[in-house]
Each structure stands twice: as structure tokens, then as C-alpha cells.
Amino acid sequence: MNMDKIYAEQLANEYAPKDASKVVALRKLDKRAKLPATIFTYTFGIISALITGIGMCLSMNVIGGGSSLMSVLGIVVGIIGFVMMGLNYPV
């Protein structure tokens, strides 16, 4: 009989509405406030890494036909990508 009562109380506690504390509410608010910045940071980082990769491919003559103009363009594009990666940290 006592085990039935304990089991019933456990079930009732599991499905009863829980009161959220102020700490939990502040954590949710903090996470929601930081979400746009996190999304921007990851997106900007991925884009800058792709730009750097395109510059590296151009400078190593993997794409672009192998001309010296494309190699120079690849170096410039790669440097732009590295600068974007460097700017991602302070932003």
C-alpha cells in the first residue's frame, strides 16, 4: 500500500506544472539575446572561410585556367578572406 502511494506521488510530481525560477528565466533570456549574434558569427565565419578557399584554389591554379592573372587574383581574394576571418573575432 505504501509503495502505491509513493508511486502515485512520483507520477503526480512528474506531470505537475513546474515553477520556473528566476535563474532559469534569466538563462533563457540570455540565450535568446545572444542568438542573433551567434548566428551572424557562424555565418560570417563560414562565408569568410569559403572566400579564403576560393582564393587558395585560384592562386594554386586549381580553378581559373592557370593564368598568372588568376593567381594574383587568388592571392588578393585569399587575403580578403583572411582579413574577414580576423574581423570575425572582435565583431
Results as ranks from 00 to 15, higher is better:
M56S: 06
G65N: 06
M1L: 12
V91W: 10
M1Y: 11
K28L: 14
V76Y: 03
R32M: 08
I54C: 02
D4Q: 15
I80S: 05
M56I: 15
N13Q: 10
I39R: 09
R27S: 07
N13M: 13
K28Q: 14
A12Q: 06
V24Y: 13
K34Y: 10
P17E: 14
I79A: 13
L35P: 00
T52R: 04
R32A: 15
N61W: 02
V24E: 15
Y7V: 06
C57I: 02
E14D: 06
G45R: 13
L87M: 06
L29D: 14
S71G: 04
K5E: 15
M85I: 11
L29G: 09
E9R: 05
I51K: 04
S67C: 08
S48E: 01
I6H: 06
L26I: 01
R27H: 04
V62M: 06
S59Y: 12
I54A: 14
E14S: 06
I39N: 09
E14M: 11
Y7H: 03
A37Y: 09
P90M: 10
A8P: 02
K5I: 14
V91N: 07
M3I: 03
V23L: 13
Y15V: 12
M85S: 11
A12N: 06
I39C: 07
T41Q: 12
L35G: 00
M84T: 00
D4E: 14
T43Y: 04
N2W: 05
K18Y: 01
T38D: 11
Y89A: 10
E9C: 01
V24A: 15
C57F: 09
S71T: 13
G81C: 03
L29T: 13
M1P: 02
I6D: 08
Y42Q: 03
T41W: 15
V91C: 03
F44I: 11
G78F: 12
L11A: 13
K22Y: 04
C57T: 04
I80D: 01
P90N: 04
N2S: 10
G78C: 06
K31G: 04
V83A: 10
V91T: 08
G78P: 02
F44D: 08
M56A: 15
K22P: 01
I54W: 04
S21H: 12
A37P: 01
G81Y: 03
G53D: 00
I6T: 11
G55S: 10
M60N: 05
N88I: 07
F44A: 15
G86F: 08
M84E: 02
M70G: 01
G53S: 00
A12S: 04
I6Y: 04
I47R: 06
D30P: 00
S48C: 03
A8S: 15
G64S: 07
G66A: 08
K22S: 08
A49N: 02
I46E: 04
G65D: 07
G55W: 07
